[in-house]
């Protein structure tokens, strides 16, 4: 069907992109893995072989333990918080109330904003100062009689990450709402009608019929959120700067590489991040592309 000349033109047109991605993604990954196995420490590249000992050192590093714990805390709160809030909003908006579009756009607008902006503003909303210097949300809680909610936010010992996760939920839950709402709207109306005729209550319709329908949405949403939480970086920097209590692998990587010049360690952290993301993403990509109807 395709003329030979066109075939070459087709290949020529996409070749630059393929080469660019080949170098900037796959080439750089390989290069990074090589650095992670080297002894490179300092300004000048040093590819002396150090091998997997680098990874063993990293796993024995107390700071890296903190990072793993923080990532887990963040992931659990952020993923479940966003999913539950997103689903709740989607169900509310699925009732066909007037003003639906307004609320939908409102819940989604944080997606258009930089994590840095979110972080800077929430940093002041979550100001932990006490007494007469109280401000931000704590002050608001104090004014409206919800004193029991007053807390130290991101400076809470051990659980500061939860406050960071809250800001991430603020930013991303609208996105989950949009995914869920689209999922709900794809359920044929006849199915709901049939259930109503059979005497099912609205609650039963959601719990028995809609939720099973939404399982694929939930799966994709978890993967999207999960891989975002592994990469979380700028949000924490903007809220709290670089603090050990709120450290995550992405920040450790950045600091150890560009401030500390431990290139081997930075590369090792980067490689581990890539591995964890790949575990989530590769099966997802294969699944999504396979189920995609032949285009």
């Amino acid at each position: 069907m395709i003329k030979n000349k066109d075939k070459y033109v087709a290949i020529a047109l996409v070749t630059p992109s393929i080469i660019a991605v080949g170098i900037f993604v796959y080439g750089f990954i390989a290069w990074s893995v090589r650095v992670s196995l080297s002894a490179w420490k300092g300004l000048l590249p040093d590819y002396t072989w150090a091998g997997f000992q680098n990874y063993l050192n990293l796993f024995a590093d107390p700071r890296f333990h903190i990072d793993i714990r923080n990532t887990l805390v963040f992931t659990i709160i952020f993923v479940f918080g966003s999913l539950i809030l997103g689903l709740f909003m989607a169900i509310l908006l699925d009732q066909g109330l007037p003003g639906e579009n307004f609320f939908r756009n409102l819940f989604l607008f944080p997606m258009a904003i930089s994590f840095i902006v979110t972080g800077v503003v929430w940093r002041w909303l979550m100001n932990p100062a006490e007494g007469s210097r109280m401000s931000g949300l704590n002050l608001l809680f104090d004014k409206i009689g919800l004193d029991f909610l007053i807390n130290q936010w991101y400076t809470t010992p051990k659980w500061g990450m939860a406050a960071i996760a809250l800001t991430a939920i603020w930013q991303m839950s609208g996105y989950m709402m949009a995914l869920y709402l689209a999922g709900l709207r794809s359920v044929p109306e006849e199915i709901r009608e049939a259930a109503r005729v059979d005497g099912a209550t609205e609650l039963q319709i959601y719990s028995r019929i809609m939720l099973p329908y939404l399982q694929p949405v939930t799966l994709s949403a978890m993967i999207i959120l999960g891989h975002i939480s592994l990469k979380v970086f700028d949000l924490i920097i903007a809220v709290a700067g670089k603090q050990l209590a709120l450290d995550v692998p992405a920040i450790y990587m950045w600091q150890t590489t560009f401030d500390g010049l431990f290139y081997w360690r930075g590369a090792a952290i980067g490689t581990l991040l890539l591995l964890s993301v790949s575990v989530l993403i590769i099966p997802y990509l294969i699944y999504t592309l396979r189920t995609e109807t032949e285009l």
């Binding site: 395709i2 075939k7 087709a10 290949i11 996409v14 992109s17 393929i18 991605v21 900037f24 993604v25 796959y26 080439g27 750089f28 990954i29 290069w31 990074s32 650095v35 891989h227 592994l230 990469k231 970086f233 692998p249 992405a250 990587m253 950045w254 590489t257 290139y263 930075g266 590369a267 952290i269 980067g270 490689t271 991040l273 890539l274 993301v277 993403i281 590769i282 990509l285 294969i286 592309l289």
Partner: peptide
């Protein structure tokens, strides 16, 4: 073209990578 179906997922993977894993070479 032949191989296009292999190229596409390989391209797609690029949008999920944590950029920390390519930052030093970059």
């Amino acid at each position: 073209f032949p191989g296009a179906d292999i190229i596409f997922p390989l391209l797609l993977f690029g949008m999920f990578i944590p950029y920390q894993s390519i930052l030093i070479p970059l």
